[in-house]
Design a protein around this nucleic acid. Structure first.
Lengths: 339, 339
DNA sequence: TTGTAGGCGTTATCAT
DNA sequence: ATGATAACGCCTACAA
């Protein structure tokens, strides 16, 4: 395999000139640059990753931290990962998938100590995420996709759950609904740790209070049986005219239940999906009116934020909250009785 | 950060002794080993990954090749990936996610040329997969998860689709069904390239012919609307008593349709899922009788096969076909009329 | 604008 | 059973 010395020889220059030419880190005359690039082309030369990592100050590796003791295998997370991998690749970085239980950081800290990583992306961040502090103490540059309870001086990219909830209530209010039923994930220990549930709930309470809307909350596991029980209960109350369901799984389950119960949508009840992934919005249930958030965007921005923080010597803390947008489709309408 | 020299100094031995002790590649006396390990412990030493990769014959990196121009974001694929990452981690390897359009291999070949990879795992392998030949020519050790049309001298781990189809028909025959409707993915160019569809179809034809069962095939895209059209058509024929649905998405869709149509299962029709992931079997539709295959197993065995092929100097071609197993639940029964 | 040479932290090849 | 030392392929002061 051709090395940098071969290129230097063929181009009739020194190795350092080749290195500098390729890294654009020093002015090179046009004529030499051309000869170097020509030699590179001739020999099909590509710098050795390990050698670069060893000699340079950067390895080119980013870790994607995936907790394995939770229900992570949803398509939303998958889409984040794929987008992150593509973005990293585009920017000349390599994404290493690192699976570790949510509480553990030993494996990752070892990786850092072994000089493998430039930084890390955290997925499925919980309100109290022990990984964050551990990594900060280990001086690992990190970006959360999501955020913990108090992300004061920590970089993150997250969906703006509060804004999404506000938008949902505002929209339903505009249609004329005054009784809204919110169906969220059950308060199992599992879900309770994630910020999105809490933040949505708080925002819903505030927004409905302000607009004078009655909010009733119901909680269910996302499986069909549990949802059915909840739905039957919810639909017993004839005053309810709108259903607000949080998350992909709830929304997908709710559809089949409503179909089975032959409930006319939106004639009898409106259904609005809150924080639904683009995949569900576009493919799985294209008729559903949703407040959408995009996993691709999270993955991309996460990687870009991390890389930027590596480049910039400054310590500016990038914190991005992505606004969701309303996709008005066919499952929402004005309430069935006039007010 | 403590390096190998520090350890050597502290242990009072030479660097090479430390290296050999840690890699167990040379007999070391008990007393020195102990001193070395003690020093390692003291200094919290971890060998530098880049230096090892540069000096040694192995980098410790495996690529997971994910084609991005297809519908890859199903939970089955995700589970394969997570299992692969965990297995790699357990064996001291790192998994790099490499996204590239199915036709392309340039990016990956560059990676090889750059000395990054020990080997590669191919996901979403098509019957005619240009990646395989390209990688073989580039002498990249590779393992397919899935397999192409003629995997003669190529390593792979795949579900045994033919065996699964046989098992399904045998089971339905045993229950007494003589008219079976198969619902597979539509013959869009998209799906046509994947072996599983073809292999299942061939096996079904053979098995039904042999057992004197009437097989009717229907094809549908996995979305609700298309499935509904197909299902209405299928259920028009009163002689049909069993539905055989291929793949997770078909099966999940079919459930909601059947619910909406209020078709009694299994009293009116039996439903049997063919090549269903463990996730669907255990969580999403736990009552469904299925022929299950396990993504976790594929991911694990894929990585292990690759690593083994790296270790063994021999050129034995490991080819693993995983048998699926029948999970008898509540959606299948004897046909509704006696024969 | 270009060249020289000393690391980077291991592994592997010789010796002993 | 252990040591010394030359690669490994590149980056980056320092020199010219």
């Amino acid at each position: 395999m051709a090395g940098i010395t071969d290129v230097a020889k063929l181009a009739g220059v020194s190795v350092s000139t080749v290195s500098y030419t390729l890294s654009r880190t020093r002015p090179i005359s046009n004529s030499t640059r051309e000869r170097v690039l020509w030699a590179v082309e001739q020999l099909n030369y590509q710098p050795n990753v390990m050698a670069q990592g060893l000699a340079g100050s950067r390895t080119g590796f980013l870790a994607l931290l995936l907790p394995t003791d939770e229900a992570i295998s949803d398509s939303f997370t998958f889409d984040i990962i794929v987008a992150a991998a593509e973005t990293a690749r585009d920017r000349g970085f390599h994404l290493v998938l690192w699976t570790e239980p949510a509480g553990e950081t030993k494996g990752l800290q070892d990786l850092m100590r072994r000089g493998l990583l430039d930084g890390a992306l955290l997925l499925s961040v919980r309100l109290h995420d022990t990984r964050v502090q551990a990594l900060q103490e280990a001086a690992v540059p990190l970006v959360m996709i999501g955020r913990n309870e108090n992300p004061a001086d920590c970089l993150y990219v997250d969906s703006d759950a509060a804004q999404a909830a506000d938008a949902a209530i505002a929209y339903l209010a505009r249609l004329g609904h005054t009784n809204v039923d919110y169906i969220g994930p059950s308060n199992s220990a599992h879900q309770a740790g994630f910020g999105i549930v809490l933040r949505v709930h708080e925002a819903l309470e505030a927004a409905t209070k302000q607009l004078g809307i009655n909010l009733r909350s119901a909680y269910s596991d996302p499986n069909a049986k549990a949802l059915e029980t909840v739905m039957i209960d919810v639909l017993k109350d004839p005053s309810v005219t709108a259903l607000l369901a949080l998350g992909d799984s709830a929304v997908v389950g709710i559809r089949s239940i409503l179909q089975a119960m032959q409930t006319p949508v939106p004639d009898y009840v409106s259904v609005l999906g809150l924080l639904i992934s683009t995949r569900v919005t576009e493919t799985i249930w294209p008729q559903l009116t949703t407040i959408t958030h995009d996993p691709k965007e999270l993955g991309q921005l996460g990687v870009l934020t991390l890389i930027d923080s590596l480049d910039s010597s400054t310590t500016d803390v990038t914190q991005i909250l992505l606004p969701s947008k309303l996709n008005e489709r066919t499952t929402t309408a004005a309430p069935r009785f006039p007010l």
